[in-house]
Amino acid sequence: MKIAESLKKECILPDLEARNKVDCLMEFASCISSHLPGLAKDEVAHLLLDREKLGSTGIQDGVAIPHAKIKSLDHLVLLFGRSLTGIDFQSFDNKPTHLFFVLLVPEETTREHLKMLARLSRMLKKAPLREKLLQAKNVKEIYEILCEEDKKL
């Protein structure tokens, strides 16, 4: 599954206002609930936070991939957010997190979830790509960078 199939431009937040983990996840929940009215903001935020309690999804090199399974979803949804100041996401390398890919998946779709995680990780392990995403001027540029990179995978 291509990243572009799951990520809409409206779900790209180029300058997150949040300064901490809870507010950050609330910001994503708020964004998705306004674009997919079937999803309640509080439910999404709650599920994302519950997942964080099992262990941070703040991975390394300024990247986090928060994710949750949502009963009412029938397809995988991807959101992207960028914090220019960085957020303490209790990352494994203790570095602030700047780039967020939020993955919302229907229940019982382990395979798709895993494939998308793999796809994102293949992309995000490249330092020049991370730098490009940090330098991008707006939503359009971020979207184009991601789509272009996605084609190479």
Binding site: A118, S121, K125
Partner: peptide, 13 residues
């Protein structure tokens, strides 16, 4: 030693 590198394997059950 890299989580991203391990996730990129996409290893299934």
């Amino acid at each position: 030693k890299s989580i991203l590198s391990l996730l990129a394997l996409g290893a299934e059950r």
